[in-house]
């Protein structure tokens, strides 16, 4: 192969063009890197640690690759050492068995700590007084999100409002195919599954409207399964609850059943929902076989 060829130039030009495009494309926000709450923050910390520790291996590999390929390329008159039978070096091999083991050890420890911590309500060092968490029951349907507030007795579709600086436990289930509940800026996702209740702790530290989307494909309307999580101060939240309770229509069983059929809806608010709608869906779809669901349900009603 020839050394510097027109091909090489073409490659360089293309690569530069692409990187310029990428840097200047003025695109959307890297939501995962701009968390608005302690859960997202904690997950981001792990991601940064992973980036740093994997870079320890990758960067040397890339540099070594470049050096070795240039140095030991077969060309006439090459003065590089050639040892066709050199194939063992215990020290070197031990080094690269041990380094990844150490990295995995560190990452594994941090992962374990965080995984366990995330099953608990987020702790807020700036606000150590124990705050009563808010419970929201989330049901994914074809193709919309229903949010029920069991303590406020109101319901919304495709958006929900939460108070800031207060842990929110989202109780997730599905009335239809599995989906996943994801609000990138607040924290990572959890599936909604028929016949199961899953808990996801999230918390917003600052007011804002946070983008959320279904995380698991559920058919033709999946691309439209977008929702917003709106974080407001405690007072605004209470005012909002009151206004929904007073001004919005009721969600009757008949309308609930209609809603469970495949359709794409906009944002809606309701001043009530059929009693035990959430529990009934879970129970009729296999929840009665799961001890876990009973535990979860008790934790809702005890609140």
């Amino acid at each position: 192969m020839k050394r510097i060829t027109p091909k090489g130039k073409l490659v360089a030009t293309l690569a530069m063009g692409v990187s310029t495009l990428l840097l200047t494309s003025g695109c959307g926000q890297l939501l995962v890197f701009h968390p608005a709450g302690p859960v997202g923050q904690s997950e981001l910390q792990l991601i940064w640690l992973q980036i740093a520790l994997t870079a320890v291996v990758i960067i040397p590999v890339l540099i070594l690759l470049a050096i070795i390929v240039i140095r030991y390329r077969d060309r006439p008159g090459s003065k590089a050492v050639y040892r066709p039978d050199w194939s063992e070096n215990r020290t070197l091999e031990i080094i690269w068995w041990v380094i990844p083991i150490i990295i995995v050890g560190i990452l594994g420890t941090v992962t374990a700590k965080k995984t366990f911590a995330l099953t608990q309500p987020p702790k807020n060092p700036s606000n150590p007084t124990v705050v009563q968490p808010l419970t929201i029951e989330v049901t994914s349907m074809d193709w919309k999100w229903l949010f029920q507030y069991p303590n406020q007795q109101i319901a919304t579709v495709n958006y929900c409002v939460i108070p800031t600086n207060r842990p929110v436990q989202f109780m997730l289930t599905s009335n239809g195919p599995m989906n996943a509940f994801w609000v990138p800026q607040l924290g990572g996702m959890e599936y909604t599954m028929p016949g199961m209740i899953m808990r996801l702790w999230l918390q917003a530290d600052k007011p804002g409207i946070y983008y959320g989307h279904g995380g698991n494909f559920t058919g033709q309307g999946f691309a439209q399964m977008q929702f917003n999580v709106q974080a407001e101060s405690e007072q605004q939240f209470n005012a909002w609850v009151a206004s929904i309770a007073n001004n919005s229509p009721q969600l009757t069983q008949g309308e609930y059943d209609k809603m469970a059929q495949p359709s794409i809806l906009g944002q809606m608010s309701f001043s009530s929902f059929p009693p035990n709608a959430f529990e009934n869906v879970v129970m009729s779809e296999g929840g009665k076989y799961m001890k876990h669901d009973q535990v979860m349900m008790n934790s809702i009603s005890s609140k």
Binding site: E43, V110, T111, M189, E190
Partner: peptide
Amino acid sequence: GAPADYQFH
């Protein structure tokens, strides 16, 4: 890493 996967999944 499970907690990171919650964001990547």
